[in-house]
Simulated scan of single mutants.
Amino acid sequence: MRALLNVILLALQLYTYLIVASAILSWLVAFNVVNTRNNFVRSIWNFLDAVTEPVLRPIRSILPNLGGVDISPIILILLIIFIQNLIVDYLMPIAF
C-alpha cells in the first residue's frame, strides 16, 4: 500500500512540473521568444496542452474573467499540494 501511495505522490509531483512547464511555455510563446512554427516547439506545446488542458478547462470555467491573467494553473497546483498533504498526513501513517 505504501508503494502505491509513493507512486501516486510521484505522479502528482511530475504533473505539477508539467503544469509549470506549460505555463512557462505559454509565456514564451505569448512574448514571442519561441516560435510555434518550429516542429520541436510545436510538439512540446501540443504535448503539454494535451496533458494539462483537460484538467485546467473546468477550473477556467468556474473562475471569473480576470482579463489576460490566467490563475488556473496556480489553483491546480494548490489543489495538488492539498491532495499530497492529505496522502502524507492521513494515508501514509496507516499504510503498513
Rank of each mutant, 00 (worst) to 15 (best):
M92A: 03
A30Q: 13
Q84S: 15
Q84C: 06
V55W: 10
I80M: 06
S26L: 00
F31W: 14
Q84I: 09
V51R: 07
S72H: 04
I71F: 11
I59K: 01
I8M: 12
V88M: 15
I24P: 01
V7L: 14
E53H: 10
I59P: 12
V41I: 15
W27R: 01
I75T: 07
S26D: 15
L5H: 07
T52M: 01
V29I: 14
P58A: 07
S26R: 11
F96H: 13
R42D: 09
A21W: 03
P64R: 01
I19N: 02
A23H: 09
L28F: 10
L12Y: 10
P54K: 03
I62P: 04
W27C: 06
N6C: 00
A11R: 08
P54C: 03
V41D: 00
R60K: 13
V33T: 13
T36S: 14
V88K: 15
A23T: 15
N32C: 00
A30W: 08
G68V: 01
V34I: 11
F31L: 12
L66N: 01
D49T: 10
R60S: 03
L76D: 05
W45D: 11
W27V: 03
L25E: 06
N38V: 04
I62S: 10
A50H: 02
E53S: 07
T16C: 09
A95N: 04
T52G: 09
M92C: 03
R37W: 09
E53K: 02
L63V: 08
R60C: 05
M1S: 08
S43C: 00
V7M: 13
G68P: 01
N46E: 12
I77H: 11
A50T: 04
I8R: 00
D89A: 13
L25T: 05
V41R: 11
P93F: 07
I74P: 07
N35K: 12
L9R: 09
L76E: 06
G67I: 11
N6H: 14
A95S: 15
L66E: 06
N46Q: 05
R57P: 00
V51T: 04
L76Y: 02
R57W: 12
F31H: 05
I19W: 02
L56W: 09
L79E: 08
Y15G: 05
V20F: 08
I80Q: 11
L63G: 07
S43R: 14
L48H: 07
S43D: 12
S22Y: 12
S43Q: 14
I80R: 09
D49F: 08
E53C: 00
L14K: 11
Y17A: 06
W45S: 14
L91M: 10
I19P: 01
L76M: 15
D70I: 04
D49M: 08
S61Y: 11
A95F: 14
F40L: 15
L56N: 08
G68T: 06
I74A: 14
